[in-house]
């Protein structure tokens, strides 16, 4: 119940922001009867109606995981964000090994195994990507080579 109400409200707000954003689109000298604002505004309006329906007639709430499980999903998001930032400056091998080991730990916590899995994945994928597919990945941080 509560989940759908909250989500419905979020959808309505996001849809209104979207419509406002669409309304500010600059028009150009080339124009057609529909123009570049109509369709996005239409889509935003339908989304807002859907949000309102969810708010007024919510379904039974989903089974949210316990706070600890939710926290570990949040941690996984954080790891991935850090990995996205680290991939370029730090090269492929080290961030991949670390990120894979952490994700592995989050699924089955056995530290020695996870560290090994991370290192092995990192090395194996590097070989496949670099030599099998010919992607230009830097293996190590700049300046180490």
């Amino acid at each position: 119940m509560a989940s759908d109400r909250v989500f419905g409200l979020v959808v309505i707000i996001a849809a209104l922001a979207y419509i406002a954003g669409a309304a500010q689109t600059q028009t150009s000298f080339m124009s057609d009867p529909v123009g570049s604002k109509t369709f996005p505004i239409l889509v935003g309006s339908v989304a807002a109606v859907c949000g309102a329906v969810m708010f007024l007639r919510p379904d039974a709430g989903p089974e949210w995981p316990r706070p600890r499980a939710l926290l570990s999903v949040a941690a996984a998001v954080a790891v991935m964000v850090a990995y996205a930032h680290g991939l370029k400056p730090l090269g492929f091998l080290i961030p991949t090994a670390v990120a894979a080991a952490i994700l592995s730990y989050q699924i089955t916590p056995r530290p020695a195994f996870n560290a090994l899995a991370g290192a092995a994945l990192s090395a194996a994928l590097f070989v496949v990507f670099r030599y099998g597919l010919g992607l230009g990945l830097a293996p190590l941080p700049k300046g180490w080579m």
């Binding site: 990995y83 899995a117 994945l121």
Partner: peptide, 14 residues
């Protein structure tokens, strides 16, 4: 899964 899922993630990223 502790090997598979990190692998899937890394393949997606690359």
């Amino acid at each position: 899964p502790a090997v598979l899922l990190p692998g899937v993630t890394m393949v997606s990223f690359v």
